[in-house]
């Protein structure tokens, strides 16, 4: 199994990525993703497919048709909504569950592994928590080692509403801030995602074991930086942050004083 799972962030980069050893390509699927500016039709996909939004029944029916169209070309799927499990049960592809903020302990992950080949470990965790999960997981897991950190996913069209209210021309991919924290905001017709502006850098976890894939989510990175990252793990031109890797979140508000 190839170890690096790389989100495809432009059509122009595909051939370059294919030339790199050990790389599996992950294509955000058009109509089924939120937070990706570059999306792909099923006919363009010859590796793994990303379905990262919450779906209703109509969406699932449509997704089933779309995936059937891609039968033979698609090698795997990374998906968020548990409803997808049923429509892919007969497809002979690798199934990876992306629960974003909800895959935060080894026991739950092990339960989900009864249904899928692998689960993406949440990147809301400390390094120690991630290590414990990997140690106690009954299958190899997908470890997000680099990428835009999703902070919030809304079904609302937050930028559209904002621009409409203030009578401004629509601009996607806005950068906003609160105090010293910065955010990147991407919207499409299915909703809005808020990311941390700095990329999540967990490359120091690359040596960990029991990993199915090291996921490099290169969303919105330019070609040069993407290739440097994938080829050499070089992030010298990219603003990065380890986020929660060395900062535990607090269980209860009361714990602030404890």
């Amino acid at each position: 199994m190839k170890k690096k799972l790389v989100t495809v962030n432009s059509k122009e980069i595909i051939n370059d990525l294919r030339e790199i050893d050990n790389v599996t390509l992950l294509y955000p699927l058009k109509s089924f993703c939120v937070g990706n500016e570059v999306l792909f039709e099923i006919e363009e996909i010859d590796d793994f497919v990303l379905v990262n939004r919450i779906l209703d029944d109509e969406d699932l029916d449509l997704l089933k048709k779309v995936l059937n169209k891609g039968k033979g070309n698609i090698k795997g799927i990374v998906f968020d909504d548990l409803g997808v499990l049923d429509i892919i049960k007969d497809l002979n592809i690798v199934k990876i569950l992306l629960l974003d903020h909800l895959a935060t302990n080894y026991e739950s992950i092990n339960y989900y592994l009864e249904y899928v080949d692998s689960v993406v470990v949440s990147n809301d965790l400390t390094e120690e928590e991630i290590k414990e999960i990997l140690n106690k997981s009954k299958k190899g897991l997908v470890l997000n080692v680099f990428g835009l950190k999703t902070l919030m996913y809304s079904r609302r069209l937050l930028l559209t509403n904002y621009n409409k209210f203030h009578n401004l021309e629509f601009k996607n991919n806005e950068v906003a801030s609160i105090e010293n924290k910065k955010f990147r905001i991407i919207e499409n017709e299915y909703g809005t995602k808020f990311y941390a502006l700095k990329y999540y850098n967990a490359l120091k976890l690359l040596e960990l074991e029991n990993v199915f894939f090291y996921w490099y989510d290169t969303t919105l990175l330019n070609k040069e930086d993407t290739l440097k990252l994938i080829k050499e793990n070089n992030v010298e031109n990219i603003e990065c942050d380890e986020l929660f890797l060395n900062k535990a979140t607090i269980y209860k508000v009361g714990d602030i004083d404890a």
Partner: peptide, 19 residues
């Protein structure tokens, strides 16, 4: 604003875990 469970803005801003 988000789908419930799909937000860690609080974690990012204050380290207070919304989930």
């Amino acid at each position: 604003t988000s789908f419930s469970g799909k937000c860690v803005l609080s974690n990012y801003m204050t380290l207070r875990d919304s989930n």
